[in-house]
């Protein structure tokens, strides 16, 4: 049996139904909502967003404002900055004042010119694996309190879960096992329905009703009942041939 073709189409469907499969789009929408929440919950935040880093390729997700994208892009172009360090070192970074910062002087001076004076960034981790960073920017230096930092760290946990989910490589495999089993059961039930249609000269719907009734009367699942119908039909001699 060729596993690949129908399953490839059905796996996402069943995955979605099982809640295992978060599409990239829904995850990004949820992360946008988290970034907006960060901006709203943290008093001096001018904007917030997430840098998602896949294979050393950073992209911005859920930026609340255009200047967030510019400040992010600046980091990506320079190849360093507080968010990239938060990601690569797996710890929070705080640029308290871009006009005097010594850690990322090039990024800081450029950012200061665009009106960003402070930046707090926390790493996003999926298990032990860093997947990016969530950050808030402010127009004032020393803008963020310890409390603000806790709030962002908290939101970053949710963002990491959402974004980690779409990157989980074992997800399709698990889904495909469920998909295979579901399709196998459906095949058995459909085959049994065909047998009943033929045997009792019934249309499709009534044949299935017939199976539902019999399964209900016997107190077994439809799958189990369908299996017994198939066994009787494909091996009519079983009763006499049994040892």
């Amino acid at each position: 049996m060729d596993d690949s073709s129908p399953l490839n189409e059905l796996a996402p469907l069943i995955g979605r139904a099982k809640g295992l499969f978060l599409t990239e789009q829904t995850a990004q929408q949820a992360v946008s909502a988290l970034a907006a929440a960060a901006k709203e919950a943290i008093p001096h935040a001018l904007g917030a967003g997430v840098s998602l880093i896949k294979g050393n390729q950073p992209t911005s997700v859920g930026a609340t404002d255009n200047f967030v994208l510019r400040a992010d892009d600046l980091q990506y172009e320079l190849g360093n900055g507080p968010c990239l360090s938060a990601w690569s070192e797996g710890r929070a970074t705080y640029v308290e004042d871009t006009e005097s910062d010594q850690h990322w002087p090039r990024w800081s001076s450029e950012a200061a010119r665009t009106g960003v004076r402070s930046c707090f960034s926390v790493p996003l981790e999926n298990g032990a694996h860093g997947i990016g960073a969530m950050k808030i920017y402010a127009a004032a230096p020393h803008a963020f309190t310890v409390q603000d930092q806790k709030v962002l760290a908290h939101l970053a946990l949710s963002a990491a879960v959402l974004l980690g989910h779409i990157q989980a490589s074992d997800t399709p495999q698990r889904i495909s096992e469920t998909a295979k089993e579901t399709l196998r059961i459906r095949d058995v039930v459909a085959a049994a329905r065909g047998i009943i249609m033929e045997r009792h000269d019934l249309p499709e719907e009534e044949a299935l009703s017939h199976l539902l009734n019999e399964a209900g009367n016997k107190g077994v699942t439809l799958h189990e009942h369908a299996q017994s119908v198939l066994r009787r039909d494909t091996r009519p001699d079983t009763l006499t041939a049994a040892p």
Partner: peptide, 16 residues
Amino acid sequence: PDVWLRYFSITGIGDE
């Protein structure tokens, strides 16, 4: 989702 999956497995034709 769980109900739909079982329904689908017994030849249900509606989606979730």
